[in-house]
């Protein structure tokens, strides 16, 4: 199997705060890895280190055979990685001055020199795939939160990524819209997309993840199949975290 992400002894600081401690993590092609943990545990920071939105201080990170260097070194690798890794954010971060269609067409045209015709066809295909083909010419502010997040997923997919990062994709959504976004993610997983997902949706993690990782204070303290992590956690910190989030 090809390893898409390889992290070895990676450390990340915010000033003096040691947010990620000696992280060893690999993600295989086609694997869905769900990262869980309390707020401030470092789980978002971890996936942001994969596409260089955060720099790390020491250790190694390799994404699709492109080695990133500590402290934002190796810009060339970073450029390549960002072309191959899509990201979906908690706050959607759609471009409010562009229509939904243009949001999706922008990166293929600017980065891959796709023609207008090709980029447009891609946008329409992807919008249909995420179930909002009829909203292409609206502006993001005219869509519901769930629709906006589905556009954000389509926008990332337009670059034909080898890996998708999801940073709490449903945390900013009204409860009734969470399902439609998780459905799209479930479909993606089924089609074999490699995914790293930070989420509080334990039901989704249990159902879709190939592997669940529990992070506590910047360290991976438990890792395994969802069934093992959720039903038979070995570490007492995992036990106490799960009892808190699964209780209600």
């Amino acid at each position: 199997m090809t390893q898409i992400v390889k992290m070895k002894g990676m450390n990340k600081y915010f000033g003096k705060l040691h947010v990620l401690k000696n992280i060893d993590l690999t993600v295989e092609q086609g694997e869905v890895v769900v990262i869980i943990g309390a707020s401030g545990s470092g789980k978002s920071t971890l996936i942001r280190c994969v596409n260089g939105l955060e720099e790390f201080e020491s250790g190694s990170v390799e994404v699709d055979s492109h080695p990133l260097a500590p402290k934002g070194g190796n810009q060339k690798a970073l450029t390549e990685i960002r072309k191959e890794v899509g990201m979906v954010f908690q706050q959607f971060n759609l471009f409010p001055h562009l229509t939904v269609r243009k949001n999706i067409m922008l990166a293929p045209m600017k980065v891959k020199d796709a023609s207008q015709v090709v980029a447009n066809a891609t946008a329409e295909r992807l919008l249909n795939r995420v179930g909002i083909g009829n909203q292409a010419d609206k502006y993001p502010s005219q869509l519901s939160g769930g629709q906006q997040q589905r556009v954000a997923i389509a926008r990332a997919l337009a670059m034909e990524p080898r890996l998708m990062l999801f940073d709490e994709p449903t945390s900013a959504l009204d409860p009734e819209m969470i399902g439609e976004v998780l459905d799209v993610m479930r479909e993606l997983a089924k089609e074999g997309m490699t995914m790293m997902v930070v989420t509080h949706e334990m039901g989704f993690a249990r159902e879709v993840a190939d592997r669940v990782i529990y992070i506590h204070e910047g360290q991976i303290v438990e890792e395994g199949k969802p069934h093992d992590v959720f039903d038979n956690p070995q570490n007492e910190r995992t036990q106490s975290f799960l009892s808190r989030v699964l209780a209600h």
Binding site: L53, T79, R82, G86, F89, N93, F95, P96, L106, V111
Partner: peptide, 26 residues
């Protein structure tokens, strides 16, 4: 919002492209 820059960069746009096609028009 900083998220606009992050979205641009994460799509593979350069800093310059992100600035002129995403940040500046807004």
């Amino acid at each position: 919002d900083k998220g606009q820059t992050e979205a641009g960069l994460s799509l593979g746009l350069s800093r310059t492209q992100t600035f002129w096609s995403i940040i500046w028009p807004q």
